[in-house]
Simulated scan of single mutants.
Amino acid sequence: MRRKVYTKDQILKAAYEVVAKEGFKGFTARNIAKKMGISTQPIYLEFKNMEDLKNTLLDSIFDQLKEEVFPVEHTGDKIIDLGLNYINFAKKHHSLYMALYIDEHGDGKKMHDFSYNYFYEAAKKDEKYSHLSDEYIDALHTGTWVVVTGLASLMSSNIMQPTEEQIISLISRTIDSVLSLDNPEIIR
Score class of each variant (00 low, 15 high):
Y44D: 01
Y44H: 12
Y44W: 11
E46V: 02
E46R: 15
F47L: 09
F47I: 07
F47T: 02
F47K: 08
K48M: 02
K48H: 07
K48E: 06
N49A: 08
N49H: 09
N49L: 08
M50A: 04
M50L: 15
E51S: 14
E51Y: 12
D52E: 14
D52H: 15
N55M: 15
L57G: 01
L57N: 04
D59P: 06
D59W: 02
D59K: 12
S60Q: 15
I61A: 03
I61F: 05
I61N: 05
F62S: 11
D63A: 14
D63W: 02
D63S: 07
Q64H: 15
Q64L: 12
L65S: 02
L65E: 09
L65R: 01
K66C: 02
E67D: 13
E67F: 08
E67H: 01
E68C: 01
E68A: 08
V69W: 10
F70E: 02
E73K: 14
E73C: 03
E73G: 01
H74N: 04
H74E: 06
H74A: 08
T75I: 10
T75H: 10
G76A: 02
D77P: 06
I79Q: 02
I80E: 04
I80N: 10
I80G: 07
D81H: 00
D81G: 06
D81I: 04
D81W: 02
D81S: 06
L82N: 12
L84Q: 04
L84T: 00
L84V: 02
Y86G: 00
Y86I: 08
F89I: 06
A90F: 10
K91L: 12
K91M: 14
K91R: 13
K91D: 06
K92W: 00
K92F: 13
H93T: 10
H94K: 15
H94N: 10
S95D: 14
S95L: 00
S95G: 03
L96S: 11
M98F: 14
M98W: 14
A99F: 09
